[in-house]
Amino acid sequence: MSIFFILYKLILASVILLVSLVIAMYSTLIERKVAGFFQDRLGPNRAGVYGILQPLADGLKLFFKEEFMPNTADKFLYILGPSLTMMVALLTSAVIPWGDSLVIGGTDYSLQIADINIGVLYVFAIISVGVYGIMIGGWASNNKYALMGAVRAASQMISYELAMGMAIIALVMMSGTLSLNEMVQQQHGFHWNVFYQPFAFVIFIICAFAECNRSPFDLPECETELIGGYHTEYSSMKLGFYLFAEYINMFISSAMISALFFGGYNFPFMDDLGLSHNALTIIGTLVFFVKITFFGFVFMWIRWTLPRFRYDQLMRLGWKALLPLAILNVIITGIVIMIQNHV
């Protein structure tokens, strides 16, 4: 491992970190614009042209707000909660293949930070750890509404993780690898997984909504019942971290959906264009970001269209509908693979 290689990886990691932060920042603006569109109003348009400076203004506002900490809070855990949420949200981007490789001077530069051979499982490990930030924050605030929100978040995330895992297992069985990069490469051209595994895709996207605590599954922060849910007692940038982490999670989930089911950086007729490898890589990365943007829009679309679930409905959907369907999907996939191997 040369020093040059380490330097390259460091630069790539910083760029991806920066891109995720900027995209998360501007998703807040797009979310409000989309909400405005759905409710037949304009949305924020005061700061800059089309409200382009609104995220900056929001960020500054959050920084200058009064820092408030409840008297009875567990000080260390109270600060640990939002920090952990933010850190975990940023960790997943390490294994997502943002593009194919760039060949510069005979050397291959992969646009993925870490191509580990258990990429999919790594993502799952990070998702399952994601609940700690919310639980710790909710408990440390020493407020019963915050605790209720934290408990709801924990049980919701554990329940939907199962169905999500089962949906992915069908995909892993089909592609025979756990490496995200290989999974994307197998979908070369227009062989996208969504055509072979439509059920897995539907289950996965529903579970992704639940894991991000997005509407219609935003019960952990359900205002009508819990004031603000797990972040009731938070103010200033600590609250900002919680809200911001949600947008980063949304971005990463959209990236995962596009990579797993919609071919990642592959696009139809990519071999017929007669372009060089590097040009294809750059176009592929752009296409990947277009797909991510589309799924980001779907997240917002659904938030401003559907009402919130009731808690027992949420649990019933997760355990009695999605999980059995996902297991059925795994069984059917297994049977089809067996038949294919024996014919």
């Binding site: 639980m135 408990v151 924990a154």
Partner: peptide
């Protein structure tokens, strides 16, 4: 991801 979350849950 699973067992310790349940522990935390119970203790909370």
């Amino acid at each position: 991801g699973a067992i310790m979350v349940l522990f935390l849950f119970t203790v909370m």
